[in-house]
Design a protein around this nucleic acid. Structure first.
Lengths: 131, 131
DNA sequence: GCAATCAACCCTTACGTTAGGGTAGTGTTG
DNA sequence: CAACACTACCCTAACGTAAGGGTTGATTGC
C-alpha cells in the first residue's frame, strides 16, 4: 500500500520524509537552508516537495552523521559521488577518484575513533558498576 | 628540594593536566568556569593548580564524554559518586543508590546507541567503497 | 647577593561556530 | 475545518579562537 501513486513523479512532503528517515522537520529544513539537501520542488503554496532520489540522498547523509562530518564536508562528498555516478565515460575522473579516496581514508579514521569511544565508554561503565 | 616535594602533595599546572588527559586547555578552563572541575587552588599569580585527585576526576569525565552526557549531567554523576564514596556508613544511601542506578541505565542505553552508530558508519563505509 | 631578562606558560575577556531546537504568527492542503 | 507546512526569529551547549596582558623560574650580568 505505498500510497504515493499520485502520478508518475512520486513526491512527498517534508513530514513524510522526516518519518522515513527519522530526522526532524527542523533538521531537514536546516539542510535545505544550508544547501545540503534542497527540496526538489515546491508546491504553489510553498510546501517543500521531495523525491525518492532525495530520500536516498538523505539516507546517505544520515549514515554519515555518526562519523561526525560537518555539513560542509557531507556536501562535498555528495558532490563527489554525484560526479562519479554521472561520470562522462572517459573523462578525467582521476582527481575525483582521489577525492573520494581521501574521504574513505578520513571515514576509516573516524570509524576508528568511534570504536575507541566505545571502548572508553565500556571502561566508564565498568567503573560505574564498581561503585 | 624545598619542603613539600615529598611526592604526595604534588600539584600541577593546567598544561600538564591537559597533556595527561588529552583534553585541551580551553576545555579544562571551561570545566572550571562551569564548575565541573574547579581547580583545587591557585598560585599567587593566578595559575590554576590541580592535584592527582583532580586528574582522576578528569579521567572519569573524559571517559564519560563519548556517551554524550551534558556537563550538568556529569556534574550530577560525580556528586553521586562522591556521596557514595564519602558515604557515612549506615546513612540513607538508598536514594543515592537509586540515582546511581539510573545513571547506569542511561549509560547502558547510550552505549547501545554508540554501537548502533558504529554499525551505521560501517554501512556507510561499505557504500562508499562501492563507488 | 640581587636585579634584570627571557622563554614558556598561563590568565581573562569576549565574540564566533555548529547543528539544530523552539516559538510565534500565518498560510496551505485535502 | 483539521493537519500540515511556511518563514522568521531567538536560543543553546561546548568549546574554538583571537587579543592583550601577567606569572614563573631559570639564567645572566653586575
Amino acid at each position: 500500500m505505498t500510497s504515493s501513486a499520485t502520478g508518475s513523479a512520486v513526491t512527498m512532503h517534508i513530514g513524510e520524509l522526516a518519518e522515513k528517515t527519522g530526522l526532524s522537520l527542523r533538521t531537514i529544513r536546516h539542510y535545505d537552508e544550508v544547501g545540503l539537501l534542497k527540496a526538489s520542488a515546491r508546491t504553489e503554496g510553498g510546501f517543500r516537495l521531495y523525491t525518492q532520489e532525495d530520500h536516498s540522498r538523505l539516507m546517505v547523509i544520515r549514515r554519515m552523521k555518526p562519523l561526525g562530518f560537518s555539513l560542509d564536508e557531507m556536501m562535498a562528498l555528495l558532490k563527489v559521488i554525484d560526479t562519479m555516478q554521472g561520470g562522462v565515460a572517459g573523462s578525467n575522473n582521476t582527481s575525483v577518484r582521489a577525492e573520494l579516496d581521501a574521504f574513505v581514508a578520513e571515514a576509516v579514521e573516524r570509524r576508528q575513533k568511534l570504536q575507541d569511544q566505545l571502548a572508553m565508554a565500556d571502561e566508564f561503565l565498568e567503573l560505574l558498576r564498581m561503585q
